[in-house]
């Protein structure tokens, strides 16, 4: 019974990791294409996130229990974390050397901080999901079974993702009222989830706000697709507008993080029940 819940939680978390990695894959493909793949390292996040998708997607879809985590799988997640961390460093370095340095303009338009962080997040979530599924009680020093560490981690991820949405929607001057949604609902979910992580008790608000965030992530893609059509030439001018308009691939990251959070709630509930 408890093993089933653990496995189901692992599946949810793996599913969340898959969505985040998917968002990273499509977003970095588009953004690094914008950057003309000027540096060969710009291909790395594509490979890392694609591998994460294969492994985590597999786990999310699979019903049966697995044995010990294979080294290939561990390697994949380590690669995502490593590539993400390196990307983060490179993006920071890149901003530093632009005219204006760490200015708002460069945070708007230069290499984003949030994107490589999302890859780190996807890798870590994937690793946790696989560890859970294999019955491990901890991932390195981090305890897994209580779900509270995972809840805290996803709360952090949610806050970061909302922070990036806040920055980029500020760049768009919140010209559409819907642009306020991802900077209101996910932060509420992040707070509720953080509280759950600290107290170990699941309030319905936590579940509801996470579910709303997940739905918002998918809805956001539709909003962004509409946003692309609002640019000159609409979808007929997709070669420009996919790059110039709002990133169609970004909002599912919210859904991914929220779904992982819901997975963590499954674990926490098990203890609060029993």
């Amino acid at each position: 019974m408890s093993g089933d819940i653990t496995h189901r939680a692992a599946q949810w978390i793996a599913g969340g990791a898959t969505l985040v990695a998917g968002s990273v894959l499509s977003d970095s493909a588009i953004e690094h294409y914008r950057g003309s793949f000027a540096n060969k390292a710009m291909f790395l996040p594509l490979g890392a996130s694609a591998l994460s998708i294969v492994h985590d997607g597999n786990l999310a879809a699979r019903g049966a229990r697995t044995g010990a985590v294979g080294s290939w799988t561990s390697g994949t997640h380590a690669a995502s974390v490593g590539v993400g961390a390196a990307g983060l460093g490179f993006h920071v370095y890149n901003i530093a050397k632009q005219p204006g340095g760490f200015s708002l303009g460069n945070f708007f338009y230069q290499a984003p901080i949030g994107a490589p962080a999302a890859l780190v997040f996807a890798g870590a979530l994937g690793a946790a999901a696989h560890a859970l599924s294999s019955g491990a009680s901890a991932l390195g020093p981090v305890p897994l079974q209580s779900g509270r560490a995972l809840a805290g981690f996803t709360a952090l991820g949610l806050a970061g993702t909302a922070g990036e949405a806040a920055l980029l929607h500020f760049r768009g001057a919140y010209h559409n009222p819907a642009m306020w949604l991802p900077v209101t609902i996910p932060p509420m979910a992040a707070l509720a989830l953080a509280r759950t992580a600290l107290t170990g008790r699941v309030h319905w608000v936590t579940t509801a706000s996470l579910a709303a965030t997940a739905a918002l992530g998918l809805l956001g893609t539709a909003f962004h697709a509409y946003g692309v059509s609002r640019n000159m030439g609409g979808w007929k001018n997709w070669r420009q507008n996919l790059l110039a308009g709002p990133p169609v691939a970004a909002p599912p990251a919210f859904a991914g993080v929220a779904i992982a959070g819901l997975g963590a709630l499954l674990l926490i509930r098990r203890f609060s029940r029993g």
Binding site: R34, S36, M232, G233, K236, N237, R239, Q240, L243, A244
Partner: peptide
């Protein structure tokens, strides 16, 4: 260059 302008 219209409707398509430039990105880079």
């Amino acid at each position: 260059a219209s409707p398509r302008g430039y990105v880079r």
